[in-house]
């Protein structure tokens, strides 16, 4: 159980996480449901969605790198002496 008297946040939020929504543009089919312009003989519909793979990778990579080294929210208490290790986000000690 949480140490009494210490507010523990169940959700850790970083604005970088919003980038994870970007790849959802792939669900808006009218954007890419056409043949031209073709690339290497491949209709737009197909190569555009291959391009989406790169966007997806970029989104997850940026979020990983940007949220890696610091806790995503400040720890609940400033005095680190009685800070529970569970309150620190992953990789904080690195």
């Amino acid at each position: 159980m949480a140490p009494p008297g210490k507010p523990v946040s169940g959700i850790r939020w970083s604005p970088w996480n919003l980038l994870l929504l970007v790849p959802l543009f792939m669900l808006i089919t009218p954007i890419f449901n056409r043949t031209g312009p073709a690339l290497l003989g491949m209709p737009f519909f197909y190569w555009f969605q291959f391009f989406g793979v790169a966007v997806g990778v970029a989104a997850t990579t940026i979020v990983f790198v940007k949220t890696r080294d610091q806790p995503t929210t400040p720890p609940p208490r400033a005095d680190s002496a009685d800070l529970d290790v569970d309150d620190l986000d992953e990789g904080a000690g690195r």
Binding site: N17, L20, V22, M26, V63
Partner: peptide, 17 residues
């Protein structure tokens, strides 16, 4: 049948957190 591509692209950002 190409839905498999957008499916596996949006998959990882959605399940990441």
């Amino acid at each position: 049948g190409f839905f498999a591509l957008p499916y596996t692209v949006i998959l990882y950002p959605i399940v990441f957190l």
